[in-house]
Design a binder for these strands. Structure first.
Length: 512
RNA sequence: GGCGCAUUCGUCUAGUGGCCCAGGACGCCGGCCUCUCACGCCGGUAGCAGGGGUUCGAAUCCCCUAUGCGCUACCA
C-alpha cells in the first residue's frame, strides 16, 4: 500500500512513494539492520532493538546486518565495538553481514564509508539538490538566538542557498570552511508511514536545509543513515522512538537522491522505575552487566521481547525459537515500558529450571570460572558441578545463586552470624548433633535415601519434628540457614566431611 | 518556546463499539505442600489520566486539558 510521502509545493506532484517490501506480494527478502553507535556498551534498549530486527530477519529468512555508526569520532572506541559484538553474540543475535562478515554492501563501519558519502554528496551538489554553506558557527548561533527571542522554531535562513558559483568559489578561496546542506522543501508536509504508529506528518517549513556533511567532511547522522539504508538495500528500519523526528529528514535525503524509502517501525523507549529513559543511573542496564550477574540469554531475550511486544493475552514464556516463530511487528505496542528487574529475575529462574542439566552444567562451568569457586569443582575429592545441579537447579534464580548455594561443598564453611546465633539458642542442638554424628557414622551405603531413613527414625525416637533435628545439622555442615535438601547435601558432601563438621559444631553449639 | 509521540492494576500487557462491573504475568498478601529456602498449587489485592462529545451502547471513535517523554546539534 504505497502512500505519498511528500505533499509539499516543491515535490507534491512528483508522486514519490514509500515502498513497503515484505508487506504485500513483494518477494524480495527482508533486509534489516541494527546500527549501534559505539559510544558505550550494548544497552538493554539497544539489545531489544537488535532482537526485534534479528527476529524479523530470522522469521522471514531475511538478512540481518550489523552496521557500526562511528561518525562521532570523539566518543566511539574500538573496545566498545568489540563489546557490543560480544554481547550480541552472547544473546544469540548473529548477523549475516557486518564488520567481520563483509558482504557486497560493505564496508559496515561508517568511518570506512566516507568515500560513499562523498560520492553521494557530490551527486547532490551536481544536481543542485544540495549546496555549500559558508555560514560560520557564530552566524548560525545568532540566527538561533534570534529565533529563540522571537519564540519561533529555529530553521536555517537559507542565506547560502543561492550563492552564485563565483561567490561560493571566492569564499572557498578565502579559506572559509563549509558544510553541505540539503536544498529541502520549504513548504508542505512530509509524512512518515510508521508500522507501529501509523501516519505521522511533519511540517517541512519547520525542518529547513539540514546539514549533510560537516566542515570536517564527515557526514551527519541523518545523511549517513539515509545513504547507508538505501545503499544496503534495507527494507525495514526498526529503531528507537527517539529517531521518529529524524525520519522526515532522512526521507528528504532519500527523495533528493531519488531512492525508495524503507518501511519504518519506531519502537517505544525502555524506561527506568522513575519513568525516565533507562540509563546507568538505574543500576544494571548493559547486557554485559546482566551476564556478569548470572542471567542467561534465554531469559534476557524472552524478557526483552515482551517489553513492548506480546503474542496473546496469556503467554509469557517463550524459547528463542518460539520467538522467531511468533514475533511480528504488528503486535508491537506504542507505549514506553518500565524495565522490571523483579520480573526478569523470576523469568531467569524459570529458564534456568527449564534448562537441561547438561546445558546448565556447561553454563555454570563457564560462569564459575569468574567467581571465587574457580577451579574447585571436581578437584581434590570435591564434588563436580553436575553432581550439585540436582540439588541447586530448582533453587537458583541466577547462576550467581549457585555459588551461594553450594560454596560449602568446595570450601570450609563460614558460619553466618545469624546461623551461629540460632545454633546457640537451640538447647537441644548439642544433643541432636551428637546423636546425628553417631547415626551418620553407622550408615551404609551413605546415600540420600538411607540417610533420610535413619534421620527420620531418629527424629521419631527423640519425639521431635524432622525440621527441628535437621536445622542444627544444616548449620553445622554449611554454616548457613538455607541450603539444598539436607539428605542429598549430606550424601554429596561425604560421610567424613559431614561428621567432622558436625563434631566441630557441637563445641560451637555449647558456646565454647 | 516549537514540533512530535505516548497515557488500561505498583510493573509488563490482553483488549481494535456490545463477549469487559476489564483477562493474563511479575510483585505483594493469605493458604496448601514442606527439613530451611526456593519451586509448585490454590485464593486474594489492585487499573481504563481528567473533562467534553459521537452512539441504543465506549477502555475501544472524535475534541480539549493534564502529565510524561523525544526531537529541535557541524551527537547518534
Amino acid at each position: 500500500m504505497p502512500s505519498p510521502c511528500f505533499q509539499g509545493n516543491e515535490c507534491g506532484g512528483t508522486g514519490f512513494h514509500v515502498k513497503v517490501p515484505g508487506m504485500d506480494n513483494d518477494q524480495e527478502p527482508i533486509r534489516v539492520r541494527f546500527a549501534p553507535s559505539p559510544t558505550g556498551h550494548l544497552h538493554v534498549g539497544g539489545a531489544r532493538t537488535a532482537l526485534y530486527n534479528w527476529l524479523l530477519a530470522r522469521k522471514s529468512g531475511g538478512i540481518f546486518i550489523l552496521r557500526i555508526e562511528d561518525t562521532d569520532i570523539s566518543r566511539s572506541t574500538e573496545d566498545n565495538i568489540r563489546q557490543i559484538m560480544e554481547s550480541m553474540l552472547w544473546l544469540g543475535l548473529d548477523w549475516d553481514e557486518g564488520p567481520d562478515r563483509e558482504g557486497k554492501h560493505g564496508p559496515y563501519r561508517q568511518m570506512q564509508r566516507l568515500e560513499i558519502y562523498r560520492r553521494a554528496a557530490d551527486e547532490l551538489l551536481g544536481s543542485d539538490k544540495a549546496y555549500r554553506c559558508f555560514c560560520s558557527k557564530e552566524e548560525i548561533a545568532a540566527e538561533r538566538e534570534e529565533a529563540r527571542r522571537a519564540s519561533r522554531a529555529y530553521v536555517y535562513s537559507g542565506r547560502c542557498a543561492n550563492l552564485k558559483p563565483e561567490e561560493s568559489a571566492a569564499c572557498e578561496a578565502d579559506g572559509r570552511g563549509f558544510v553541505i546542506r540539503l536544498r529541502a522543501p520549504s513548504g508542505g508536509t512530509t509524512v512518515v508511514n510508521d508500522l507501529i504508529r501509523g501516519e505521522v506528518s511533519f511540517d517541512n517549513a519547520l525542518i529547513g536545509d539540514i546539514i549533510l556533511v560537516r566542515a570536517s567532511g564527515i557526514p551527519t547522522y541523518n545523511f549517513a543513515v539515509a545513504v547507508d539504508d538505501s545503499q544496503m538495500g534495507i527494507t525495514h528500519v526498526i529503531r528507537g522512538d527517539d529517531h521518529l523526528p529524524n525520519t522526515p529528514k532522512q526521507l528528504m535525503v532519500l527523495e533528493a537522491m531519488v531512492k525508495p524509502a524503507p518501511a519504518y517501525a519506531h519502537l517505544p523507549l525502555i524506561l527506568g522505575p522513575d519513568r525516565t529513559p533507562l540509563s546507568k543511573r538505574h543500576g544494571a542496564s548493559s547486557v554485559e552487566e546482566f551476564r556478569v550477574r548470572g542471567y542467561i540469554p534465554e531469559a534476557l531475550c524472552n524478557y526483552l521481547a515482551l517489553l513492548g511486544w506480546s503474542y496473546d493475552a496469556e503467554t509469557t514464556i517463550f524459547t528463542t525459537g518460539e520467538l522467531v516463530e511468533k514475533f511480528s511487528l504488528g503486535r508491537v505496542g506504542a507505549t514506553a515500558a518500565v524495565f522490571d528487574n523483579d520480573k526478569l529475575l523470576w523469568m531467569n529462574g524459570y529458564h534456568i529450571r527449564n534448562l537441561e542439566p547438561e546445558k546448565l552444567s556447561l553454563r555454570l562451568e563457564e560462569y564459575i570460572a569468574t567467581t571465587r569457586l574457580s577451579g574447585l569443582p571436581g578437584t581434590g575429592g570435591r564434588p563436580g558441578i553436575e553432581e550439585l545441579i540436582p540439588l541447586a537447579q530448582e533453587k537458583m534464580k541466577t547462576l550467581a545463586d549457585f555459588v551461594e548455594l553450594t560454596d560449602f561443598f568446595f570450601l570450609p564453611p563460614t558460619y553466618e552470624d545469624k546461623a551461629l546465633a540460632k545454633l546457640r539458642k537451640d538447647e537441644l542442638a548439642p544433643e541432636i548433633l551428637i546423636r546425628a554424628a553417631g547415626i551418620l557414622s553407622g550408615i551404609e551405603p551413605y546415600d540420600a535415601e538411607t540417610i533420610e531413613e535413619a534421620l527420620r527414625r531418629a527424629a521419631d525416637e527423640m519425639d521431635i519434628r524432622l525440621g527441628k533435628l535437621l536445622q542444627p545439622v544444616r548449620i553445622a555442615v554449611s554454616g548457613k540457614l538455607v541450603t539444598p535438601g539436607m539428605f542429598e547435601t549430606l550424601a554429596v558432601l561425604g560421610k567424613e566431611k559431614g561428621i567432622d563438621r558436625i563434631n566441630a559444631a557441637i563445641k560451637m553449639a555449647r558456646n565454647d
